[in-house]
């Protein structure tokens, strides 16, 4: 989708130093220090993350969160205290296709994100201040995750079982938006794509899937795209929403 996806990524994982760990309600923001050669990638791309001294046999895909004062990633508290505590982590990336932001503007683009999908949004918010964000979270103590996204116009976060679909329908009914950029769990992404298609609004959806490698080798991250099973790490994670409702 984006030109950056064609770039050459460094072969092999590099080492990043953990420089801080901050509570984020029921989650943890782990801050890392990257060397100058490390590309953060484009919003929507991801990195594979692993503590070589930890218990995880394989790396896990994470979206690096780009904040005004550094970068990091958000994980559940148990992972932050155990496998991803540092002091060093192996990181491979950036990988996958990110958002195409060429037609993005704060006036006509709407952001929708839920759960860990929210970690993608600060990078977009920094480029397009005051862009509107509809946020969904699983439980009330995850609310600080939504407020990490600075510079955006944030709707009151929807806490499960309340869904983001209701405010999305209302927003698109105004006719003010021509594009939706969304990131979150699979069912949410498909619902957003369907609603956008019904309103005649373009959508880009960042998908989530468990991955073993992140670069197409394992074929493990199957997601339904174009009506069949395809690799999330190669086709996505950001795909045209129309491909999810074909």
């Amino acid at each position: 989708m984006s030109a950056a996806a064609e770039q050459t990524t460094r072969l092999g994982p590099f080492t990043a130093r953990v420089v801080g760990s901050e509570p984020l309600g029921g989650l943890t923001l782990v801050r890392v220090e990257l060397d100058a050669r490390t590309s953060l990638g484009e919003p929507g791309q991801f990195h594979m993350l692993r503590n070589a001294a930890g218990r995880d046999y394989l790396a896990r895909p994470v979206g690096l969160i780009q904040l005004d004062d550094g970068v990091g990633f958000v994980v559940d508290n148990a992972s932050a205290q155990a496998d991803l505590a540092g002091p060093e982590l192996e990181i491979l990336g950036p990988l996958g296709k990110g958002f195409d932001l060429s037609a993005t503007s704060a006036e006509t683009t709407l952001l929708v994100a839920a759960g860990f999908g929210l970690t993608v949004m600060p990078a977009i918010g920094r480029l397009h201040t005051r862009i509107r964000l509809i946020a969904g979270i699983r439980q009330s103590d995850h609310t600080p995750l939504a407020h990490l996204v600075a510079g955006v116009t944030l709707d009151t976060p929807r806490i499960a079982p309340d869904l983001i679909t209701e405010p999305l329908e209302e927003a698109l009914a105004t006719g003010a938006y021509t594009q939706v950029l969304a990131a979150g769990p699979g069912p949410m992404g498909k619902a957003v794509a369907e609603i956008c298609q019904r309103h005649g609004v373009a959508s880009q959806i960042a998908l989530e899937a468990p991955m073993a490698c992140g670069f197409g080798g394992c074929y493990g991250c199957a997601v339904e795209i174009d009506g069949t099973w395809k690799r999330c790490c190669i086709e996505g994670p950001v795909v045209d929403g129309a491909r999810l409702v074909a």
């Binding site: 468990p210 991955m211 073993a212 991250c221 199957a222 997601v223 099973w229």
Partner: peptide, 10 residues
């Protein structure tokens, strides 16, 4: 197309 998801488990 391969098997339906999920396809991997740690």
């Amino acid at each position: 197309p391969g098997n339906p998801a999920p396809r991997i488990a740690p």
